[in-house]
Simulated assay, not measured.
Amino acid sequence: MPVPTKDRPVDAVREEVIDQLILNYSHGEISADAFERRLDKAYSIDDAEQLQALAADLPLQSDPRYHSEKQARMQPKFTASTDHPDTLSITSILSADQRSGEWVVPKHIKLNNYLGSIELDFRNAVFTHPEVTIEINCISGSDEIIVPDNIDVITSTTNILGHVSNNRVGLSSNTHTAQRPKLYIQGKVILGSVDISVKQTMQEKVKQFAHSLKSLFDEGKHS
């Protein structure tokens, strides 16, 4: 006998409802406006029965193929390759350095920034380890670290007339995200700044995934 909806964890019900919304929108069962309206409600409601009602009239249920596609597109990427070094060192002196796109993230990153600018964008990065230590030595420079909503960041720095801004604090309590990468940022900031920011929320990423899935199915219909 299934557990009553009201007794189930809200986060689990929310995830199932969002999966149904994505799948039914991508197959043309609901319009784009209806999808976005219901998705907004799914992220704002904290009652399991109200959440389930958002998808009660939708005919399609998620299946292993859907979850495989979701895993490939939505979750942080990992590689088991041993060809990559364990440490990446970046030194910026009166210059700028950037890592973005599908760059390979090692277990340990060292940033030496003297009057320069360094940007690490983890939104499409490929991880070699679930826990990454970023050692910062920032003197009169600026370090910017960009993460999606499914990566956790923990900071522990010594600041001397410096500034550290972390808008992605702490570890998620969601049991469904146990494999999330974690960034541990430590070191010193002297007359400089370190900014950690989320440039793509999980809701935005869900919408992007849903639209890409719909485009994929639409192409299949016309091919």
Results as ranks from 00 to 15, higher is better:
77 K>M: 06
77 K>Q: 07
77 K>S: 06
77 K>Y: 03
78 F>R: 00
79 T>S: 06
79 T>A: 02
79 T>L: 02
80 A>R: 06
84 H>C: 01
85 P>H: 05
85 P>W: 04
85 P>C: 04
87 T>Q: 02
87 T>C: 01
88 L>G: 02
89 S>V: 01
93 I>T: 05
93 I>L: 05
95 S>D: 09
96 A>P: 03
96 A>L: 06
97 D>F: 03
97 D>W: 02
99 R>H: 08
99 R>E: 08
100 S>Y: 04
100 S>D: 01
100 S>A: 09
101 G>V: 03
101 G>H: 00
101 G>A: 04
101 G>S: 05
101 G>I: 01
103 W>P: 00
103 W>F: 06
104 V>D: 01
104 V>E: 02
105 V>E: 06
105 V>N: 04
106 P>T: 09
106 P>W: 08
106 P>F: 08
106 P>A: 07
106 P>K: 03
107 K>P: 00
108 H>Y: 10
109 I>L: 08
110 K>Y: 10
110 K>W: 08
110 K>Q: 12
111 L>Q: 10
111 L>G: 07
111 L>P: 06
111 L>K: 07
111 L>I: 15
111 L>E: 10
112 N>K: 10
112 N>T: 14
113 N>D: 14
113 N>M: 11
114 Y>M: 12
117 S>V: 10
118 I>L: 09
118 I>W: 07
120 L>I: 13
120 L>K: 10
121 D>C: 13
121 D>F: 10
121 D>V: 09
121 D>M: 10
121 D>G: 14
121 D>R: 13
122 F>I: 14
122 F>E: 00
122 F>N: 01
123 R>A: 00
124 N>Y: 11
124 N>P: 02
124 N>G: 10
124 N>F: 09
124 N>T: 03
125 A>P: 13
125 A>T: 13
125 A>L: 12
126 V>F: 04
126 V>K: 01
128 T>H: 01
128 T>A: 03
129 H>Y: 12
129 H>E: 12
129 H>P: 11
129 H>M: 12
130 P>N: 14
131 E>Q: 05
131 E>K: 12
131 E>C: 01
134 I>V: 15
134 I>T: 09
137 N>T: 15
137 N>W: 15
138 C>D: 15
138 C>N: 15
138 C>M: 11
139 I>N: 15
139 I>W: 15
139 I>F: 14
139 I>P: 15
140 S>E: 12
140 S>K: 13
140 S>T: 15
140 S>A: 15
140 S>R: 12
141 G>M: 11
141 G>S: 12
141 G>Q: 03
142 S>D: 13
142 S>A: 13
143 D>G: 11
144 E>R: 14
144 E>S: 09
144 E>W: 00
145 I>E: 00
146 I>W: 11
146 I>G: 02
147 V>A: 06
148 P>V: 01
148 P>D: 05
149 D>H: 08
